[in-house]
Structures are given as C-alpha cells and as structure tokens.
Design a protein around this nucleic acid. Structure first.
Length: 152
DNA sequence: GCCAACGTTGGC
DNA sequence: GCCAACGTTGGC
C-alpha cells in the first residue's frame, strides 16, 4: 500500500465539491502527465490513502484526506471534444489517459505550504520540492503519519 | 502578472 | 537523438 498526494484546482473540483458528490466520490479526470498517469496505472491500489491538495488558488495546501476508490480506468474526457481535457491524438482503441475515483474521507483545516515547510519531519515531501509540478506524488508512510497526526 | 521549472514539439 | 523554442504549471 502506498500513500499519495493529489492536486486539484478548487475552481475545478474543491474538497467541498467532492464531499457534496454522491458517496463523496469524484472521478479524477484530467491527468495529462505520463508520470502521474503511470502512478495511477502501476502503483495505486483501491484503498490507498490520499491527501487532497488545492493548487493554483489563493491558499494552496492540504485540505482533506481521501482514499483511492477505484482501479485505474479510461479517462473519458480525452475523447470529449467539449472538454478542456480533450486530447485529439488519443485513440479510443488505445486510450492514452487514465483516471481513478477518489473518495473524500474528511475535510481538514487547510495545512498551508508555509505550515508544511515549517516542519522538519516533512523534508522531502514531494509537493514541497522546488519546481514540483506533478499532480500526483507518492507520500511516504512517515510523512503521512506526521501530517495526519493530531488531526483529531 | 512574473517567472522558475519542467514537459513537449519539431526541425535537423 | 539532439536541442532550441514553446507551452504549462503553479507559487508568489
């Protein structure tokens, strides 16, 4: 079992949006990076713990805990011409992009980037690395424990 | 809006 | 296969 941090733009799908969805579960569509896709395809398992992260917004940070709720499957938005995630070079007989379902477990008070950086035990957390752009990053078990400890 | 970092594209 | 140009991400 691995732990993960998954970025979402709250304008697109916030943790509140996900909580309001049926079963608090949303399809994690729109991943268009091969490395992130390969994590979903090769390493994610149903039940893996997830940190829900808000990016490209006023207060970026970890905003909730969640779990992987499905195996990787074809991301339908790659074939949807009206979607911002449409990929004209992806063929239905050989889909290029995958998604998983993500089920929010709970919303937490936002843990901001400065708050995360202030904790030496979180050194090396993927989202804190300079230049990090990956929308899905693995989280070590010790980092996971440190982050969720004391959430009450 | 700026800009660093990084991925992708395409000419050669 | 190299690499310059370009596009995107994402914090600030």
């Amino acid at each position: 079992m691995a732990c993960w941090l998954m970025k979402s733009e709250p304008d697109e799908c916030s943790v509140e949006d996900a909580l309001a969805a049926p079963n608090a579960t949303v399809p994690w569509v729109g991943v268009r990076n091969h490395q992130a896709r390969n994590f979903m395809r090769d390493a994610m398992r149903v039940g893996d713990p997830v940190l829900f992260y808000h990016s490209s917004c006023a207060v970026p940070g970890i905003v909730g805990t969640a779990r992987v709720a499905s195996a990787a499957c074809t991301d339908p938005t790659q074939f949807d011409r009206s979607s911002r995630y449409f990929d004209p070079s992806s063929r239905p007989e050989q889909p290029r992009w995958l998604m998983v379902d993500v089920q929010v477990i709970r919303k937490i008070p936002t843990i901001t980037l400065p708050q995360l950086r202030a904790r030496p035990e979180l050194d090396g957390l993927g989202v804190l690395k300079k230049g990090n752009r990956l929308s899905i990053t693995p989280v070590s078990e010790s980092h996971w424990r440190a982050i969720v400890a004391g959430l009450g």
